Amino acid sequence: MTVHTSTRLSDGRELIYFDASEATARRRLAGPSDRRGLPDRPASGTVRYDPLTGEWIAVAAHRQTRTHLPAADQCPLCPSSPSHLSEIPATDYEVAVFENRFPSFGPELGLLPADPVWGTTAPAYGRCEVVAFDSAHEGSFGSLSPERARTVVDAWAQRTGALSAMEGIRQVFCFENRGADIGVTLLHPHGQIYAYPFIPPRSAVMAEQAAAYFEASEGRRTLVGAVLDAERSSGERMVLEGRHFSAYVPFAARWPLEVHLVPHRQVADLAELRDEERDDLTGVYLELLARVDGLYSTPTPYIAAWHQAPLDARFRPASRLHLQLTSPRRAADKLKFLAGSEAAMGAFINDTVPEQVAAQLRAAVPATARKG
């Protein structure tokens, strides 16, 4: 069972270690503290209301100064050493989660105005956290050992539950950006968690679709569950099937490479997964990522986005947890860029055929197997 222990960095931000044993966790608390003497945290940024879309836009100019592709000996996610004090004071760690020093949302918590109009501005309430998957400087989730990956899954679940209980939070989003082509600014294997004070636009659309289907269907079926059943029945786009999770390329994939990883049981978020489901998720997800990297001779850039149910009561029973993994890579040496139709109109035009992509993933030799 994963043990988590909380401490504070020198500017007051929370740091949480996740360890596979109680003994290791005790050593964490007895270890060194943050000696950097950082200045006090600034106030939250702002959000502005767009009346044309009904969306909130975050303004976070302070993020312009965030760390960008530092040298390995200056990495803020590596363990601290006598010559470099990082964001993680420990000399070694398994998984660490801490409040982002350059957050898009937070550190203040609160409620946004209920009836915004043109010109409405409010603090960017919420919280942004960094999840350091491992103490090693290079890699990604797919390069983790099964044991370490399972600890990350537990960290996602624990943080989802804790953030969901905070004032004003309406959606918790766990994700990993992988590769410079995605815009990654740190090479150290890590992900992030955003706790939003509003339901983001795409989540809002999906939640409304899910709620409408749930309320109209016989037996209160979930839409994601119905799609999973249809994909498993068809089989054309299936990639992997485990005991508790299955992965498929969606029928209406937007991106050249897109895979959905879905639990067989209805759960609203990661925090609701049972131990045996987390075990299966770990194995299936690692194999999926190995197949994604097995498509080409170089690592594939991707965004791995966990869609969790918004915290509004109407959406919780209708929305099923699922992972959406997308990559702009449309060939070994080509990337898809969002042009006029996608960027301006939100109307996606896919360059690949979902059935063919699924077949390629099924046939892919995982990169790890090629190396052996």
Rank of each mutant, 00 (worst) to 15 (best):
I303D: 12
L186P: 06
Y248W: 07
V184N: 07
V262D: 00
A195Y: 03
R291S: 09
A343V: 10
D229G: 13
D279G: 02
A252R: 00
D279H: 12
Q192R: 11
I349T: 13
E272D: 12
A30F: 03
S143P: 05
F98A: 06
D229N: 12
P366H: 01
E99D: 11
F214K: 04
R63G: 01
F348E: 02
A72V: 11
E355H: 08
A132R: 03
P299S: 13
E272Q: 15
G340W: 10
G12L: 03
Q171G: 06
G54T: 06
H137V: 02
G346A: 09
F198E: 10
R237D: 02
A363D: 12
G283T: 06
G54W: 02
W56S: 02
A313Q: 13
E129Q: 12
A332W: 05
G242Q: 09
A60N: 11
E87D: 15
E241G: 10
A71G: 10
T7W: 12
E277I: 05
A331R: 11
V205Y: 10
L109E: 03
V130K: 04
Y125E: 04
S217Q: 05
A90E: 10
D73H: 13
T352C: 08
M345P: 00
G31F: 06
F251A: 14
V130Q: 03
M345W: 10
P123G: 01
A309C: 08
Q360T: 09
D34S: 05
A61N: 14
Y17T: 11
L187S: 13
L15G: 03
E277K: 02
A331Q: 08
A180E: 14
P197C: 03
R35E: 14
L257Q: 00
F198R: 05
A369I: 15
L52P: 00
R232W: 01
A90T: 04
M206L: 15
R48C: 12
E208S: 13
P39D: 05
S297I: 12
A20F: 11
